[in-house]
Amino acid sequence: MNELGEGSGTDGCDDNWRSLPGRTRTAWLVNEAISCVIALAVCGVVVAVCVANGWWGFWQQLIVGLFAAYAVLDLAFQPLQTKYAYTFYRFRIGERDLRTRRGWLLRKSTAVPYNRVQHVDTKQNPVLRHFNLTTVVVHTAADEVEIEALDTAEAERVVALITERVASAKDDL
């Protein structure tokens, strides 16, 4: 097994699937809390503008109330959603392709052959930076695939490994 947790078996071996670091859950929760605060701030601004201009009627109250209730309920259920997302998010860096899978009930699996990769980069928002996490983004002509919230040092190793395998795959063509 190498430094990135890959086994020496074939690309189809299930033991090659890796999960994200545990602090990813906390980073996701903080991001959602920030989104909720922004949504509630927008509601506050809409209320202030509507009241100041005499537009504060039944429909405005209903729309702002539903939007605010949705934001608060989303935040209330976010720990459960985050636990679910974290539990069922896996990625694998194989010999011929990169694979990700997420979800249990609504499952999504993606396989990206290295010969289709155009470039690989990383991204961080302030929350990920605070938790020393980085997202690896693999770009193809049609789409992009993300390996979310890896340790920053590991993300750099993953980028180097994928870049090396992309170069090897394109040399084989």
Rank of each mutant, 00 (worst) to 15 (best):
A85K: 13
Y86G: 09
Y86L: 09
T87I: 02
T87A: 14
Y89D: 09
Y89V: 00
Y89R: 12
R92G: 03
E95R: 12
E95N: 15
R96P: 00
R96K: 13
D97A: 12
L98V: 15
L98A: 10
R99D: 10
T100A: 06
T100R: 07
T100H: 07
T100Q: 07
G103E: 11
G103T: 09
G103S: 10
W104F: 14
L105Y: 13
L105R: 13
L106P: 00
L106R: 12
L106Q: 14
L106F: 15
R107C: 08
K108P: 00
K108D: 11
K108Y: 06
S109C: 09
S109T: 13
T110K: 11
A111L: 10
P113N: 12
P113D: 13
P113K: 13
Y114T: 05
Y114P: 00
R116C: 03
V117N: 02
Q118Y: 01
V120F: 01
V120S: 03
V120G: 01
D121T: 15
T122S: 13
Q124H: 07
N125M: 06
N125A: 05
P126Y: 06
V127F: 08
L128K: 02
H130G: 05
F131V: 03
N132Y: 04
L133F: 06
T134V: 09
T134P: 03
T135F: 04
T135Y: 06
T135K: 01
T135W: 01
V136Y: 06
V138E: 01
T140S: 10
T140M: 07
T140V: 08
T140D: 07
A141E: 04
A142S: 14
D143N: 12
D143V: 02
D143Y: 00
E144L: 02
E144Y: 02
E144I: 02
E146H: 08
E146V: 01
I147V: 15
E148K: 10
E148P: 06
E148H: 14
A149R: 05
L150N: 05
L150Q: 09
L150P: 01
D151I: 02
T152M: 05
T152D: 15
T152L: 04
A153V: 13
A153G: 09
A153I: 08
A153P: 00
E154Q: 14
E154S: 03
A155Y: 06
A155E: 08
A155R: 08
E156L: 11
R157P: 01
R157L: 14
R157D: 11
V158S: 02
V158N: 06
V158Y: 01
V159Q: 10
V159P: 04
A160Y: 02
A160T: 11
A160M: 07
L161G: 02
I162S: 01
I162P: 01
T163K: 12
T163C: 08
